[in-house]
Design a protein around this nucleic acid. Structure first.
Lengths: 235, 235
DNA sequence: CGCATTTTTGATATAGGTCAAGAGGCGTGG
DNA sequence: CCACGCCTCTTGACCTATATCAAAAATGCG
């Protein structure tokens, strides 16, 4: 099994949170100058590539992570070995909050696209959250958000026909404002939607034929949002 | 549409948290004597019956609830009007934590069996959680727990064949330690598992025929845990 | 260029959706 | 207390969507 990030590997860079380019949207957005004095250990920054593990299910949870860029999947496994992706993480998302309540990571966190993360030692976050109520509030907000995400995952991506699910996935998670989508591989699509790889493939192919998706370069599409919405709700 | 609990209706009783019978397992477990001075408003207690709404999706979230006894479902709706149950709440569970981050309730919370709740004004909880770090910690723990629940809902109850799902539902949510189960109605089973009422009915009937379930009184069963586990994992 | 992996496509089987009708409970009102 | 109507549950018949198994095509990599 591929190992997850070790302390040593992690030491690729030392971030300066004060001048973080994501400062406004990041967990630490609400910190004030005095708070930074409490960050004794430097915050580590780390680049990862597809297939890398950010952490493994069952590992002792002692670090939290902010995704600076890229795409990460949270995966859980069934007794029969099949997998289900239960959440996706992108820029500014925080993961590993299990660490705050002590215990173990609940998922395998696996990199899907080149990704950069900041590593937040849990004791630092814990300490800061007691002293800075804006951070405290922000943590709650993130928790609530993760929960809302999970609920959406159930109602949107685990309910209805394969066509509906694929359409909803495209609308919700994949396509940018210009309707350009870079699709992930069919196996992951299946694991997100609870359908087989083949069905995922067939459905995308059908969408292509019917003009809901127009392939530009391999695996890059332009979506017809209108039509997708029709499929997502209707038949 | 049935209205949710109003302030007036709520005034059925005034709880004394100090001597609460659930004291050890409840959100306020970690409170100390001095903390109670901050609970100026009395905590209201309220009995509810099947079909009542605890709150509606979209309502301004300003109260949290502790379930003292009974069973409550959290429901979300799809554009086509079909519903999906995304969580179940039982004794000692807390719901309505959306209130802590301001905003609206995310679900309809509907009573399934006779239920008693305590109503916690959010400002009280907020205030206390700033001053008592045990409560603060407990809130985090509950949030994490809700999230873990949601993930399980996806992997266990929204993945695999109808038989598998029903078996997992019985094992996970319904049957007590003595293998006695009181099943909820077929429509709710369907809404939990993402299958139709008919399929739920057929599957339960099949389990009865094959001896995985033995009906004692109407809708009360004794389960064969071994066999159910076999079905849950295997075919 | 050739091997490995992923995607696509095809043929087939089947689980589960859909529609419809009958059966059992339960409360209400005569 | 019985009868009627209203639910929910059950069962049946049918049909479609999707899983499954298998093989070919495409893609990427060393």
């Amino acid at each position: 099994m591929i190992k997850s990030v070790s302390k040593e590997e992690a030491w690729k860079g030392e971030a300066n949170c004060r001048i973080c380019t994501l400062r406004d949207s990041v967990l630490f957005a609400g910190l004030e100058e005095k708070d930074f004095e409490h960050i004794h250990k430097p915050i580590e920054q780390l680049p990862l590539k597809p297939g890398d593990y950010l952490y493994h299910a069952g590992d002792k949870a002692d670090r939290m992570f902010t995704i600076r860029s890229g795409l990460v999947k949270l995966v859980q496994y069934l007794p029969d070995g099949s997998q289900r992706i239960v959440r996706l993480l992108r820029a500014t998302d925080v993961t590993g909050m299990e660490a705050l309540v002590g215990g173990e990571y609940q998922h395998d966190a696996i990199i899907m696209q080149n990704t950069e993360v900041c590593i937040l030692p849990v004791d630092v976050v814990q300490r800061l959250s007691q002293e800075n109520s804006a951070l405290h509030q922000e943590l709650m907000r993130r928790w609530q958000q993760a929960l809302a995400e999970a609920d959406l995952w159930i109602t949107q991506l685990s309910t209805g026909s394969a066509k509906q699910r694929v359409a909803r996935l495209l609308l919700k998670l994949v396509c940018d404002d210009d309707n350009r989508c870079e699709l992930f591989n069919r196996e992951d699509m299946g694991a997100i939607l609870g359908i087989t790889t083949e069905t995922a493939s067939r459905t995308v192919a059908e969408f292509k034929r019917k003009g809901l998706l127009q392939e530009t370069t391999p695996n890059n599409y332009i979506a017809d949002r209108e039509k997708l919405m029709a499929v997502a709700e209707d038949l």
